[in-house]
Nucleic acid binder design. Structure first.
Lengths: 160, 160
DNA sequence: TTTCTTGCAAAAAGTTTGCACCACA
DNA sequence: TGTGGTGCAAACTTTTTGCAAGAAA
């Protein structure tokens, strides 16, 4: 069974069907998002686009991202807690993110519990859920140890 | 059984313990957040603050909100999907939000499933979860009906 | 009285937009 | 060829910051 991952072509097809033109810039932005596991902010997409086409503009990147968002080909997430900036990624299978507050690493995870939450909320409030954003923050395995060490220091070195 | 809701005084005590000064402005911002069920963006807090003190500045509101955030007295959420702007609310019992995409209404809900998610992710990835953001979007009960009507229209009015 | 906080205004940071030119379909 | 997309620069929105004056502790 093939992943429910769409190829670039299928996404492009999705755009076409909406009467959108297929410009090199759009192809480029799509390809950038297609070829990474990361969640990129608009500026990063722009910088990567520049590497392949010196003449693209940031405005076009933003416009393209919005077009792709509207087409349901990509999605936008707000990952940070201290910086309000959108991050973009392909609209593939549903997954969620854990951000390490110490090292900034992002861990993706899946969970079937979210489906339960949706059902629960739908039933309790009569709503129809179209989007679920679940985002965890904390310390990753590596940083937990460091934090433990720091906490210990703090313990032994009391007032100031 | 009394709610685990903190009073203004307790929050203020929390600030004091961190060596922060208790200015009228901070009291004001805290009181504004204390006396609403809503999630306010910085500008709304500012506007409400102005009603009681003509001389407060937006900069102070932002600075105060950040101080309160750092003190763990309030928390910041990103609720919108199309407008990236921070919303602030008291750090009380854990709850989550559903935003109606049609009318903008925000419904708060609680769920014990989130605790399960945390445990699941902690176990699977060895991380330590410190914050959980869960945000649903969709249509509220009222808007579901309207949407149904609109969808029906779209069905009967095909190409273009 | 010392240090932290405020107000003001200016600057940042992120995103959108008007307009003339350009290129997909 | 015509409509929609692009680049550029300027505007907009949200948030932060430098600095001198002001006020908690």
């Amino acid at each position: 069974m093939v992943m429910d991952k769409l190829g670039v072509d299928e996404r492009i097809e999705k755009l076409r069907m909406q009467g959108l033109r297929l410009t090199p810039q759009r192809r480029l932005v799509l390809d950038i998002l297609e070829s990474t596991e990361e969640h990129l902010d608009a500026e990063t997409v722009y910088l990567r686009a520049l590497e392949r086409d010196e003449s693209v503009s940031l405005a076009t990147v933003y416009r393209t991202l919005n077009v792709l968002l509207d087409s349901g080909v990509i999605q936008q997430r707000f990952l940070d807690h201290d910086r309000n900036r959108g991050y973009y990624e392909l609209y593939d299978k549903e997954h969620f993110h854990f951000t390490c507050r110490a090292c900034g690493r992002v861990i993706e995870f899946e969970t079937e519990l979210v489906a339960l939450v949706r059902r629960q909320v739908s039933r309790q409030h009569g709503v129809q859920v179209q989007y679920t954003g679940l985002h965890l923050e904390g310390l990753c395995a590596e940083c937990v140890e460091n934090a433990a060490a720091i906490a210990h220091q703090a313990d032994t070195a009391p007032t100031s």
